[in-house]
Design a protein around this nucleic acid. Structure first.
Lengths: 345, 345
DNA sequence: TGCCAAAATGACAACGCTGTCAAATTGCTT
DNA sequence: AAGCAATTTGACAGCGTTGTCATTTTGGCA
């Protein structure tokens, strides 16, 4: 019933250890031997026992995905991306949702890592951006890959364990798009302050305005969070009657925020995009489930997370050095839909 | 650095095996001994090595969560519920998204189970409803708990490994709510045919109509899927000019569908709830992010899934029989929001 | 052909825990 | 106080793999 490494060894006419070498892709196995073993593996449909590998080896065959994010779409994409690589590599995925500001977070975190003796961690924002966590992991000597908001330049200088999403470029592009549609009073409902993406998107927005000679006005900024509700609140505040600016466009911190802003605009009987253009970020399903559909910046989270997992695995044993996986920058690309239009005077 | 069961044993002045008994809550340990051991465990902050336990024991310390569901909110809730129990029990959670109709699904499925030697499985719809899968698991002697759409009566007759959600009752209640608001031509955009929830919700709807002496009309049914897009399509079809019925209310198969229907109504310049009432199911965040917010039936998926995990663990070793966990029926409760209103003639 | 370093393979002891079964201890009962 | 069953504890052998180190085989070169 249960096929062990010994059965394979016997059938292939080699020692247990040689089979181990083959399945772990270690060097120093003759081609002929390799084939024999693989043949036997297939014949017996051998599945290495994860528990035994974990116990005997120096690190386990599992990685962790750590997140503190209320956005279900985001989390699922992350999971699926990482999971697909895990399957290919024969690793397990341990998901670890947590609350980054809870008192015993660090403690739970460590417990989890130690218990599972994880081979590595994929960290998503905002945890990937907390220096305390990074320091802790470094100290413990734990492999990890960070998903971060950042630009190409940063990537070059960074340690080789980061995956960047260039939110700056995305914001720049979207802002420019709005400017080219004739918008001048472009408001921005920002996401959580502690997310680096918020600062990056704001910077992109500002630089685009500057590049086109449009003066900045901080009263056009609303400091909120990455939530639908915040989008509603932000838009209401910005569009309130008393506001002296003639806002003709709103950037939402992400699609949820943008959807919220759109919602608020509708409550105020404002036509989209006739009277007001709205744009989001991320191209989550949200952006396709509003009416009109949102202009946004496409960000393939499943691919990004898969890449992160790939990078993490490249730091693990059993991987040739010629798999030269390095830090990488993903740049979201703008998707123009129906929520943005030419400004009408 | 690494604390093993031997360290604890030494400190507590007992044998390794006794420590094992304590941490596994096995009977036959004197109170005094138990306390000594627990004291040592705390003192050393001992974390049992999962891999070793898995290897030595008869089953592993991990359970699987199997799903084939595009609804991110649903999946996340399920995960979190199961995960919270896993943490309490010291188990790991292996998530297993899959495509129920893919050719090699069963194969992958088995591979996963065997590799991880899972202690059990939590199955969500629609997989939990596929007899072929149930048979396979029974044959392999694998523990599992099913999440199903069903009613109290069914629960009594069922094997003791099912958690039911009474979609029938929910649909009945919502339909009655609409009837009481004066609606007579109530349309229904149904979800995927292969989901039992679809049949259950339809039955509840039908029985409510019957109970109130309202004739049924199959032209008021739209057979779709559990997606936003389907809701859009369905509502468009139902509300098309050519339709002779004066539909005043639409039931969405779930909140996504309802949101889609709402979207479609908006495109057709139909006022909600003035001209048309719309209701969903599940009370997902969706239902709070439309305008107006959706009337729906609250279904606490995280609690439901936690209960499922609890039931599964009760079938696992190390659990007293007096933890009398049995099949359970959850009945969603209606949440009236702004998308349903009195019919205006 | 013979020699030697390099490459390939194997023997065997961990890894940290649980299951089995035997031994020691307890607490009744007489 | 002795005897006995029930309870509690412990010794020890795996579980299926990998890491270490010893051994064998290979292939190149004199």
């Amino acid at each position: 019933m249960k096929v062990t490494i010994n059965d394979v060894a016997k059938l292939a006419g080699v020692s247990m250890k040689t089979v181990s070498r083959v399945i772990n892709k270690e060097p120093s196995v003759r081609k002929k031997t390799y084939d024999q073993v693989m043949q036997a593996v297939k014949e017996l449909n051998y599945q290495p026992n994860i528990a035994a590998r974990n116990l005997a080896g120096t690190s386990s065959f599992a990685i962790g995905l750590v997140y503190d994010n209320p956005n279900a779409y985001y989390v699922i994409d992350m999971q699926n991306g990482v999971l697909s690589r895990c399957r290919d590599e024969g690793y397990e995925l341990v998901i670890h949702p947590c609350e980054s500001n809870s008192a015993n977070m660090a403690e739970e975190f460590i417990t989890m890592i130690k218990r599972s003796r994880l081979a590595g961690l994929v960290l998503t924002p905002p945890l990937s951006e907390q220096q305390a966590i990074i320091d802790m992991l470094d100290e413990l000597g734990i492999h990890y890959v960070r998903l971060l908001s950042g630009r190409a330049q940063e990537a070059k200088n960074s340690a080789n364990n980061c995956i960047f999403v260039d939110d700056y470029a995305a914001a720049y592009e979207i802002t420019e798009h709005l400017i080219q549609l004739g918008h001048k009073n472009i408001a921005f409902v920002l996401g959580d302050e502690e997310h680096k993406s918020t600062a990056e998107r704001l910077a992109g927005y500002r630089d685009a305005l500057k590049a086109h000679g449009i003066a900045q006005d901080d009263s056009l900024l609303y400091h909120g969070t990455y939530s639908f509700e915040s989008g509603v609140k932000g838009a209401k505040a910005l569009l309130a009657d008393g506001n002296p600016n003639q806002i003709t466009a709103i950037l939402g911190g992400n699609d949820e925020v943008a959807a919220g802003a759109l919602f608020a605009a509708r409550l105020m009987n404002i036509e989209i995009p006739g009277q007001l253009s709205i744009s989001g970020f991320e191209d989550s399903p949200f952006s396709r489930q509003t009416w009109p559909k949102l202009t946004t910046a496409h960000q393939a989270n499943n691919i990004i997370s898969e890449h992160a997992a790939r990078l993490l695995f490249s730091k693990t044993r059993g991987h040739r050095k010629n798999d030269k996986e390095v830090s990488h920058v993903f740049t979201p690309s703008m998707v123009v839909r129906e929520s943005t239009g030419r400004v009408t005077q």
